[in-house]
Amino acid sequence: MKIEVRLFAVARQLANQETIAVSCPESATIADLKQAIIEQLPELATILDHVRFAVNSDYADEKTQLSSTDEVACIPPVSGG
């Protein structure tokens, strides 16, 4: 399946795109998605140990399972306020 991942801040800058489409196995988890990103978009590999992912606007963990209709976002360390 294809997972669309929204990018922000440095992730958007490194990929030079606002959204990436990542090919993942069916019922992939966030850990699988990260592995797929390393293979398909190596320019993002350096930050992946430091970012969180959100699924449908909630923080997810490595074991969170994805479906192709989920809204997935890559959340680099935040700096609001």
């Binding site: 800058q13 430091h50 360390p77 935040v78």
Partner: peptide, 21 residues
Amino acid sequence: VPIWKEEHWADGTTEWVHPGL
């Protein structure tokens, strides 16, 4: 909260601020 700050430094460079990155 997923909000990010980008510094526009006086030397003309820019930098997204990501604590710990």
